[in-house]
Amino acid sequence: MVTKTEQPNEQALDVNNHSAKTSSSQSKKWIKQLLKSKTGTVGLLIVVSVILMAIFADLIVPHSHSETNVADRLIPPFWMDGGSSEYILGTDNLGRDILSRIIIGSQVSLLVGISSVIVAGAIGLSLGLISGYYGKWIDQVIMRLVDSFLAIPNILFMLIILAVIGTSLPAIILVLGVTTWVIYARMVRSETLSIKERDYVKSARAIGANDMRIISKYILPNVISSFIVIATLNVATTIILESSLSFLGLGIQSPDVSWGLMLSDGRDYLATSWWVATFPGLAITITVLGIIFLGDWLRDVLDPKTK
């Protein structure tokens, strides 16, 4: 049960040497732990391959993702009757190769999914910390803001903003971020409220730590693990939210492509040509699972108790 993490004695007083050694032993420990956790390893493999796929998308696509070819429309995947080895995962209603579109679509989907979670997380985390820690009127203001965001339907809100500022990739990321920060703010606030009352925060005040220090060294490290869990789960939600924007014509526009857009394109053909929507859907599922696995592992790594 008790893992020994002893440092040799002579090291303890040698500052530079020591910190260098611990940082390398730290990363070694992380990797060791990652390999120990099977799901963590799987998650890392998935996430790394999706990222590589996005980076080298242009080099590996077998076909153009945007060129339409009406003659080859709705070809099923290669293993089915009428399938062709040219289009491994089949084609969509305009004759575009689904595999190529998934590869190119990963760029936008990953970017949108991860960046808007970062935007939302950053806003939610800071407002939640401030709200929970300071309380009083700041808390009131922030929480009323949260309430009003919850009261307005997400889609309506996004439509209005996008109609005003126009749709572009950064605009979509911003809008998705701004509409989903509430989840983090509420979670972080309630965690902060309970941690604030713990003795170790009192003890930080008793030694004269200022608010900044208490928030960053005593509260943040203790809310971060639940935050990571929620954030990784939300990458999925955001990717799907982006698809509904696309569906409404305010998301990614053709000829650009995202998994969400493909998903909504394929909706009309679900009954006759299931592959059009299924493969982008699978891509989302696998990626999200990878991110969740990785997030779980990250949470464990950040918790000193599991070391």
Binding site: D199, Y200, S203, K217, Y218, P221, N222, P304, K305
Partner: peptide, 11 residues
Amino acid sequence: FQDPFASLNPR
């Protein structure tokens, strides 16, 4: 403090 399990920051 009273509770040494609660008064030290676990991180």
